[in-house]
Amino acid sequence: MAQRIDVKDLNIYYGDFLAVQDVSMTIDPQSVTAFIGPSGCGKSTFLRTLNRMHEVIPGARVEGTVEMEGVDLYGDDIDPVAVRRNVGMVFQRPNPFPTMSIRDNVLAGVRLNNRRISKSAAEELVEASLRGANLWNEVKDRLDRPGSGLSGGQQQRLCIARAIAVKPQVLLMDEPCSALDPISTLAIEDLIGELKQDYTIVIVTHNMQQAARVSDRTAFFNIAGTGKPGRLIEMNETSTIFSTPAEQATEDYVSAPFLVRASQDVAAVGT
């Protein structure tokens, strides 16, 4: 199922503004790749180009190629809707559909395909997806209750279940734990470790420890200053990035005490 992604010379624009410049990287299948860097460095923007969610914002466009198993996602014959079906996404804040039950939330993506799925097949899929998201035992008795009644961590796992129910090849996670408490965060991190058996996983995180814990490879993004585009500074095995990075900027970022990093973040946001 899992597939590799090759990004070549990617520039990302909002209108005339160059947000991310010249990114090239390879994302391996059946592994977890983490994107780290200060706020505003373009790591989330870059993540959203991997399933063409980027272009939902008016005026946004890219130059360069994003290839999945050699197929350019931005090719003329490619349907962005099909791309998003094959590249699932989990957002920063859990966003189950408030008007749907837990079961319908899991099935939301499948139902879009208009396939008349049999009732038993639907039940199996719901159970498999919720088990896959480590949520089954907590919600199996209340599948018909609204998804918004769950706790934040449960909601986020419901969103993961919803994403994997459509059987994507790649799973993108945009700071999936930043709105969660430590225990829920741990549950999600465990889940990421299991999911990488089947999926190519890319996770954006602000949390160095989390990147170190869950990822196999890490990419460090940085921004030179206000109005300058974000860039990929360095990408390597996670252990290498956190022990012996090649670039001074990476070393400064990963080894800086939390407060310094936070102030860098604030500076990047405030500017």
Partner: peptide, 18 residues
Amino acid sequence: TPKLHEEAALALGATRWE
């Protein structure tokens, strides 16, 4: 309509109408 829910639907591979 919260952007969050619209993006959730799009990320599942929904067309604009869906």
